[in-house]
């Protein structure tokens, strides 16, 4: 999309941390794979070889990534600050939504999630917000459960 038009977003700090994390993941897979080798009968190609090999490749690539970060030019570009507040509220709402989905039922949780998110995106227009959120949550539930005979958590009893 728009980002492909040559915006340099390389960030040294992020790549360093990412390099270290990928390195640790590679090491973790190797260590954990060595524990499963026991039961490979009849063949010398057990279930551990593939993950071990991949772990080694991942470690090598992470080291290369870490080396590359030293070559980045020093200045980091100032970007407009991402809108964390809006994002975190929506994410928190989504986490609550998926965890309450099974106990409170699809329609209620979906309606509440949409209400919160619409208002976080832009305040005001309550009537329209309620209408769209209600139409979506009831509409999807009705279509999926009644028309298509699918199954979704209904209403709390």
């Amino acid at each position: 999309m728009k980002r492909i038009m040559g915006v340099d977003k390389v960030s040294k700090t992020f790549d360093r941390y990412a390099g270290i994390i990928f390195l640790l993941i590679g090491a973790l897979f190797i260590v954990e794979s060595r524990k499963i080798s026991a039961s490979s009968y009849g063949s010398n190609v057990g279930p551990d070889i593939f993950p071990i090999a991949l772990g080694i490749v991942l470690i090598l690539l992470s080291i290369r990534l870490l080396f590359e970060t030293f070559k980045y030019s020093g200045k980091e570009k100032k970007k407009s600050k991402p809108d964390y507040k809006r994002f975190l509220i929506i994410l928190a709402a989504a986490v609550l939504y998926v965890n309450l989905l099974e106990s409170l039922g699809y329609v209620i949780t979906t309606f509440l999630f949409l209400m919160v998110s619409f208002q976080v995106m832009e305040r005001g227009g309550w009537l329209k917000t309620i209408m769209i959120a209600a139409a979506f949550s009831f509409g999807v539930y009705y279509l999926f459960v009644e028309v298509l005979q699918g199954s979704l958590p209904g209403f709390p009893i």
Partner: peptide, 26 residues
């Protein structure tokens, strides 16, 4: 403002309709 939350809701619905568990949603 309407499109983005609805895409989130469709994603959650879609995954739940096939997987039926909270683990996949997280």
């Amino acid at each position: 403002k309407y499109l983005l939350p609805i895409i989130i809701a469709i994603s959650i619905f879609g995954v739940y309709a096939v997987q039926f568990n909270t683990f996949d949603l997280m």
